[in-house]
């Protein structure tokens, strides 16, 4: 064809599907032809009845019936073909999915091999070692954080002083006294009854206590 751009490839499966679809198309075409014949025959039968030719009408109707049963059969075939085409197309997708799964699995295995626990431990150990070395070197060179504890407190004090100069003396804010009533409300009813009950009970207990114990 002399195409300059790369054309999509036609695979053997494509060809197979193409063949099936062509057959499907030819059945459809056949159905189209038959239904036209059927239409024509019913028209002819109608005319024959009008012209008082019952035999002729019957002939057309019979032949129409036959065509109709052929059409019904072709629908079955069409169904079969469509099913087959659908199955093949679906299988092709399944194939792709399986291929995708396989490839994914390969990559995952490879990644897992690279990430074994011992290796990671080793790498982390090495990292820690290196960090310690860096600290040692910094200390040796008198760098590190640079200041000792005394110097650090001096810095803090100076910062506090600066703060006072700029923002004014720090006012310590005490929390407000709560406004809400925090005491529970005193009960308003039946307080006397309860007191009496309590008294009675206390009396009972008292009586019991006062009774001499049966020895």
């Amino acid at each position: 064809m002399g195409q300059s751009t790369s054309a999509p490839k036609i695979t053997a499966q494509d060809r197979a599907i193409f063949k099936l679809k062509e057959q499907r198309d030819s059945i459809k075409q056949y159905q189209r032809k038959l239904s036209r014949v059927v239409d024509r025959q019913s028209e002819l039968a109608r005319q024959a009845v009008k012209n008082k030719q019952p035999d002729r009408a019957k002939f057309y109707l019979r032949s129409k019936k036959q065509q109709e049963s052929v059409i019904a059969k072709t629908f079955d075939q069409l169904d079969n073909l469509e099913n087959l085409i659908g199955t093949i197309e679906f299988k092709l997708i399944e194939k792709d999915v399986i291929y995708g799964l396989q490839e994914g699995n390969k990559v995952l295995t490879k990644l897992n091999n690279e990430m074994s626990v011992e290796r990671i431990d080793k790498v982390l150990d090495q990292l820690e070692d290196e960090r310690i070395k860096v600290d040692e070197i910094s200390d040796a060179l008198g760098m590190g954080s640079g200041l000792n504890k005394l110097e650090e407190t001096e810095v803090d004090e100076e910062l506090a002083k600066l703060n006072e100069e700029i923002n004014g003396p720090e006012v310590v804010k005490l929390p407000d006294t709560p406004n809400t009533q925090i005491l529970p409300k005193a009960p308003t009813n039946k307080i006397e009854d309860k007191v009496e009950e309590v008294k009675e009970e206390a009396d009972k207990v008292g009586q019991q206590a006062n009774e001499p114990l049966a020895a």
Partner: peptide, 9 residues
Amino acid sequence: MKLGKAQIL
């Protein structure tokens, strides 16, 4: 086909 988007059978 000139765009490489189609192939005929």
